[in-house]
Design a protein around this nucleic acid. Structure first.
Lengths: 229, 229
DNA sequence: CCCGTCGATCTTGTCAGCAAAACTGTTGGC
DNA sequence: GCCAACAGTTTTGCTGACAAGATCGACGGG
């Protein structure tokens, strides 16, 4: 259903019905939570009607989504949500390994240790219980929070943007890997180790440990790929 | 690049109907070789007239350039070439370190060693002479060739695209750093070391050495930043 | 002589309409 | 019964034209 269906044809459109950035954000969210399944085709007319904007604006939004490899465009045949194939999943993890490793290093160098000690306590205490009780959603929420904090503390906008472009696919993969047997607890321990390095200001070790953690996740993905992809 | 043979009955079309991709490519080239200086504003009307296309198409080209952070857009004030400031240059090198390190590792794992032996001979012989004679342009040409080969051999399209988005700025920085005293010869030696690791299939060592090389280049940049930025 | 105000002109932002290509359901032939 | 051709409909691609905002020069008051 339409979100904001204020009276149509309000004389002045200057109230900004929905900017291109807004449409991109909404569509990104839907694709990330798989509200629209991979392979589904996005009709420009439908989206234009839903957002109450001219089709041209939807078209521009699809352009940036195409640039971000979130949708695939076939000439004269429309846009469809990019399907996440197996090799691409591994490509993503290879990249996460080096990019998030860099982020951990930079964050350790620039951020203040107290911040990481706080997170460390969280991962040692409440998070452990969450894993034991299999409360995955709150766990993922805190996990994402830490991830965002590290990226922000790293202070490298280009790095942030690169991690952002693979974020949606990452989100899907994280959820699938976390439910693998033993993965959640192992990942928690690895985060504790990394946070300890960050708390004591050992940037190089923090980078190494983040990379170890992601390589471990990649190994899980490889081992169980037929079950989750 | 993309096949540009419009074989259709576009005889009616006046001149060459340049596609969006074509316009982007031309503009990228101009920005990379600083044919248009940083800070220069790009007028849509002028470009439309030059490429003999409607303004809307130029606009789309500017959109993808904006996505790639090559131009900055100020609402109602137009697009200007992004200025490369000092912190951004360091951000670029932090990213090159991990991304090209990953590329070296993947290329070593997937590529065949003979390929790298050939490049190794080049860097040991002819390239050494080029450095001694200060023939920088041919040196850079071979350097870029190796870089492209490694990226291609790595076989990770997302990685390739990320390196591509920072390529233009990289190109400018490489040239400025290479003319620093002793940098060219040091870089050559570091490449020889990396290529030796690649030729013997030591992927982890190849990654480490590429990172060492780029960190060294970054150090040069830091030391001489006031002279070259 | 300097500075704020105003208006003409240019530049960008937005849109609706038209043309081309693909999809769908139908029909006819074998 | 199955396949191929066809016409109507839908969807995308593209362009010119119009409106909003900014730039720059002229003008008049202090």
């Amino acid at each position: 259903m339409a979100a904001k269906a204020s009276s149509r044809s309000s004389a002045r459109n200057r109230g900004s019905a929905a900017s291109v950035a807004r449409i991109v954000e909404v569509l990104r969210g839907r694709i990330a939570r798989q509200d629209v399944p991979p392979g589904a085709k996005l009709r420009e007319t439908d989206l234009a009607e839903e957002f109450l904007v001219p089709r041209t604006r939807v078209r521009e939004a699809l352009n940036v989504l195409e640039q971000r490899r979130l949708v695939e465009r076939i000439p004269n045949r429309g846009a469809m949500v990019t399907r996440l194939d197996i090799p691409q999943a591994f490509h993503i993890y290879d990249l996460r390994e080096v990019l998030e490793g860099l982020a951990a290093r930079l964050a350790t160098e620039r951020g203040e240790p107290s911040r990481w000690r706080k997170e460390l306590d969280l991962f040692k205490g409440p998070m452990k219980e969450m894993v034991q009780k299999n409360e995955l959603d709150p766990y993922i929420e805190r996990y994402e929070s830490l991830r965002r904090q590290i990226i922000e503390a790293a202070g490298n906008p280009i790095l942030a943007e690169m991690l952002d472009t693979i974020w949606e696919k990452t989100q899907v993969l994280i959820r699938r890997i976390l439910i693998l047997p033993g993965r959640a607890e192992l990942g928690r321990k690895q985060h504790v180790a990394m946070l300890e390095a960050m708390a004591r200001g050992d940037a190089a070790e923090a980078e190494r440990l983040r990379r170890v953690g992601l390589r471990s996740a990649r190994a899980h993905l490889e081992k169980f790929q037929k079950y989750i992809l």
